[in-house]
Structures are given as structure tokens and as C-alpha cells.
């Protein structure tokens, strides 16, 4: 789009540093010096580790997610996962349920399980729950539960990673008071390092999304009397349902 005031500003920076324009000496501190091939090879190694080490990683994330504040449920099959999701909604006594339009709902029959409990979820996309963005926003703020899949989970921190995109609104995991995330075995990364290796590899390939959210527990604040309270703006309750 537009860049304003750049040359004068950079001139002052160079003046303050007493240096001239130019490419810095290579430096090992930052990862910037890695070539695209290095990054792509590292990303492939990460993907292999996710699948080779899936059992240990899923055990680890179940533990770290619970520490981070997720209510974690592990189930054996997609059908069981759908039942758990429906049961969470029933236990919470809610009827206004919103879900994203992600692949996970093709394998985990959430709609059917909810229907069996008399709940019809809305799909949080422009064109389904709403005809336009303001309508979608209203639907997300009105909903009592938001259900999504999980792009990656991170064992180190108990984090769910979501990349908003077509079918996955930014608000469905944020505006409702409860968020349920469905994680498939095999989508767990060891640590933040591997996440950003994959992101960089995607960026190099021109495949990075407009934004990314790392979610590690409920919305929290400690701003009144230094007491931690859940649910200041976003969900006060977050559930992680792990399949397989």
C-alpha cells in the first residue's frame, strides 16, 4: 500500500549509529541467515517428528494443556469425540452453539451428536450463520459455545494454534463464553520452535495466512487486586477434546 516518511527516518537511524546503508554481516544470533532450503528441510523434519513421535507428543500436550487451564478429555474415536462435545453443551445447559467450517467436522460427527440432544449448531461463516461480516460478529457474540478444530497443538506450552481463514472466523474461538477445540492425534508439535519453523517455511512458500492465534487456556486477567480471574473478554471455559 503506502510507506510514508521512510527515507528521513532511516537517515536519522544511520546517523545515530554512524553507519551507512548496506547489508549486515551474517550473524548467527538470528535465524535470518538460514536459506530457504535449510528451512524447508527443517520443516520436513518437524513434520516427520510429529507423526513418528505422535503418541508421546499427545500425552505431553494433554498434560501441559491441563496445566494451562484447558479441560482436557481424551477419547478413542471420532464418534466418542462428537458425543463428548455434545455432552459438554448439555452439561453447560446451552442451546446457542456456533462452529467453524473446518475439515475436522467431516470426520467428527458433531452436528449429529448435537442434533441427538436437540441442539442445532450454526456454522460461523458468511453465507451460513450470517449474510455479512456484521451479522457473523453478532452471531459470534450471541453464541454460548464456539467449536473449532485445531491446526496444531504445542506440547511445551499446552497451546492450540489456529489460522483464521475461509471457514474459520477469527471470532468463533473468542467471542462465545465457551470454546471447545477438537485435536487429532498427529497434530502436536514439541515446542514453539517447531511452530515458527513451520510458519517460516509456509511464509517462504507464499502460503502464510493473514493471522495466527496461539490459545493457551481461558481469557484471564489479574488486574483487580492481583487475583487471577477467568473470562474477562473471551471464553471463561475452554475444552480440549483429543481424538486418538
Amino acid at each position: 500500500m503506502a510507506i510514508t516518511g521512510r527515507e528521513a527516518f532511516l537517515g536519522r537511524v544511520r546517523g545515530a549509529l554512524s553507519k551507512s546503508a548496506g547489508v549486515p554481516e551474517p550473524d548467527n544470533a538470528t535465524h535470518l541467515g538460514l536459506t530457504d532450503e535449510d528451512v524447508s528441510a527443517a520443516a520436513s523434519a518437524v513434520r516427520r517428528e510429529m507423526s513418528d513421535n505422535a503418541d508421546a507428543l499427545v500425552d505431553a500436550v494433554a498434560e501441559s494443556a491441563a496445566t494451562a487451564g484447558w479441560k482436557v478429555r481424551r477419547v478413542a474415536s471420532p464418534e466418542d469425540a462428537a458425543d463428548v462435545v455434545a455432552q459438554i453443551c448439555v452439561d453447560a445447559g446451552v442451546s446457542n452453539v456456533l462452529r467453524s467450517d473446518q475439515d475436522v467436522f467431516n470426520s467428527v460427527p458433531v452436528d449429529a451428536a448435537l442434533a441427538a440432544q436437540g441442539i442445532t449448531p450454526s456454522v460461523a461463516t458468511v453465507g451460513q450463520a450470517a449474510q455479512d461480516v456484521p451479522g457473523l460478529k453478532q452471531a459470534a457474540f450471541d453464541a454460548e459455545v464456539g467449536i473449532t478444530g485445531v491446526d496444531y497443538a504445542i506440547a511445551e506450552t499446552g497451546t492450540v494454534v489456529l489460522h483464521p481463514r475461509e471457514g474459520l472466523s477469527r471470532l468463533v474461538s473468542l467471542a462465545p463464553g465457551r470454546h471447545i477445540a477438537i485435536l487429532n492425534r498427529g497434530d502436536v508439535l514439541p515446542s514453539l520452535d517447531e511452530l515458527f519453523t513451520l510458519e517460516r517455511s509456509d511464509y517462504n512458500a507464499g502460503e502464510i495466512e493473514g493471522s495466527m492465534n496461539l490459545i493457551s487456556g481461558p481469557s484471564r486477567t489479574g488486574d483487580i487486586a492481583a487475583t487471577i480471574v477467568d473470562g474477562i473478554h473471551g471464553p471463561f471455559e475452554v475444552h480440549l477434546v483429543i481424538v486418538g
Binding site: 494451562a68 502464510i208 493473514g210 493471522s211 495466527m212 492465534n213 493457551s216 481461558p218
Partner: peptide
């Protein structure tokens, strides 16, 4: 270990 949210923004919405 990490905050509840970390958000990365890569420009306006696609």
C-alpha cells in the same frame, strides 16, 4: 509458560 493468547498479524484480512 506462555500467555493465554499470542496473536500474529500478517497484514489486513485476506
Amino acid at each position: 509458560r506462555i500467555s493465554s493468547y499470542v496473536t500474529m498479524v500478517n497484514g489486513p484480512r485476506r
